[in-house]
Amino acid sequence: MSPKSMQEAVHKTVRGRAKGGESSPKSIVFLIILWLAILFALVFLAVLIVTTIVDGWNRLDSRLFTEYPASDPEEAGARPAILGSLWVIGTTAVMTIPLGVAAAIHMEEFANRHHWFSRLIEVNVQNLAAIPAVIYGMLTLGAMGLMGVSNKNQVWVGALALSMLILPVVIIATRESLRAVPAEIRQGSLAVGATPLQTVWRNTLPAAVPGIATGSILALSRALGEAAPLLLLGGLVFLSFDPNGITSGYTTMPIQIFNWTSRPQAGFHELAAAASVLLLVMLLAMNALAIVIRNRYQKRW
């Protein structure tokens, strides 16, 4: 083959168009379809956010934070719901994170992975993560009935339901970040005479903390936006005081929004929109924090 024809042959095969590469009509049509799919999602989201902000704009003021629910939408605010959300989420975090991290450490670092019991738990955790939130509300309701707790509108009862809801998520996130710590690090630790527990406590776990923090924050932000299980647990109440402890009565922002939306007066609908914007901002802030932690502290091995 002459150098010239060789060059031509190479030219023909290497260039994309010859084989239906990136610039062929087929690929371009496919690319456009992908773009439209993304556009649809983004437009939908933007419309939702913009209309909510427009609806709630007039009520996005200090009254939202300072006032208690009232029969007159002009005088009503979400103060107890905001505080209630903070109490419930705080309690959920305290209940879930230590338990979830401990469970994940056991499963990842100590349990015999091939034992049938470990596998059973593993499959269970995976499945629990996919169970609808309302089921956890029913479960907690049943448990409270068995325990003879008649007043279910308490912060810790709501937190218990949310805790069960996000426990599988925390466990899975923690396991993932523990697994990301290379085996060589554990071996290095054991090789200088550290016990397996010391290895976890001083080496593996600290290295996994950024991932655990990120996963936990994302899980908590899911719990923050959850209304269904709390509705079952009597979270839908008219509260005229600040929740102030784990046995206090409470309502949360999603429930308050749900409540206001179902009222006939337009004023309450504005209020619901304003509270939604606030909830959205809180969720975005939590997710942003998770991303910051991930980007700043996550280790590259």
Binding site: P182, E184, I185, Q187, G188, S189, A191, V192, G193, A194, T195, Q198, R202, N203, P206, A207, K299
Partner: peptide, 25 residues
Amino acid sequence: GMVFQKPNPFPKSIYDNIAYGPRVN
């Protein structure tokens, strides 16, 4: 003691890498 094929320092400071063994022991 053991030194591995791939260098496997702990994700800690140089000082803490050395002090780790004496501390855990």
